[in-house]
Design a protein around this nucleic acid. Structure first.
Lengths: 151, 151
DNA sequence: GTTGCTGCAAACCCTTTGCATAGGA
DNA sequence: TCCTATGCAAAGGGTTTGCAGCAAC
């Protein structure tokens, strides 16, 4: 989806929600759209600042929340004490593999897991709304590094 | 496993780890063994206090950590900002369904999901160590309540 | 002009930690 | 006696919030 389109969608949504189109919100949207990785609010605020964009941390949190409500960003817990955000424009749902040694994050999608989750919910009379799945382990690179260290 | 046995195991493990057998640690083990639910440290400390057992929150956290190292309790994140603990004595691994309305927690085990997780890891060259899976939705009771409210 | 937004700093919440004292081994 | 454990209160780290001034509409 071209940036122009997201921008228009963002503005339109803000209008619908009775929110104002401000310089800060546009700057944050722009920065989010540049990101393809999993980022945390603090790092994001720092990067904005380095780019010469002055926006307070409070506004970053507030705006990321709006973007989350609009499903433009997704929030995940990857085993740290802070939340991670990711740009979801043109991206399908996925879960995460997290390396316990180097913190590398790899995305995956296993449709059969998704189906089984649905089934579990139905079996328990739940209407599923969301889920959170993270697999923690040691990535290939770290395993290799370990093996070498033991030689 | 009878309580006596866990108690002995706890004392033995403490000895191995060069930790002391204290009144506080025994009181906390006893309270943990009474629990079959998912509890948080704060509630746990409050309940201890109501039972007339005086133990500081700091000691509760410290001791729950020891019990976690010993695999006597398991730590989970259930979508809240605090950790939940559960007594794992005589209990197998399981994942959780969480109701977004009433916070009810239901446990489930779907071996096929576990297998597929293994497969995903192998496919990505990861050595799996742990995983975290929560399904969020609306439980049967809340769905009924909603339906009635709409009549 | 009205209403919502921002930045700041303080508050929050859960959890951890430093330190003096108490208490197992 | 020696050394760890405890309790307290303060610190920590991420996130939220109250408020006065400011910017959209």
């Amino acid at each position: 989806m071209p940036y122009e389109e997201i921008l228009e969608r963002f503005k339109a949504q803000l209008k619908i929600m009775n929110l104002k189109v401000t310089r800060e919100r546009l700057m944050i949207l722009e920065e989010v759209m540049k990101r393809k990785d999993h980022f945390d609010a603090d790092q994001f605020a720092a990067d904005l600042s380095v780019s010469g964009v002055k926006v307070s941390r409070a506004t970053v949190y507030r705006t990321l929340d709006i973007l989350h409500d609009m499903k433009i960003v997704h929030k995940t817990t990857l085993g740290h004490k802070h939340q991670h955000y990711e740009n979801m424009v043109d991206r399908a749902h996925h879960d995460h593999l997290v390396c316990l040694k180097c913190d590398k994050v790899v995305e995956f999608l296993e449709p059969r897991i998704e189906e089984l989750q649905e089934k579990v919910c139905v079996d328990h009379g739940f209407e599923i709304k969301d889920h959170s799945l993270q697999l923690f382990g040691i990535c290939g690179d770290c395993k290799e590094a370990d093996a070498e260290a033991n030689n």
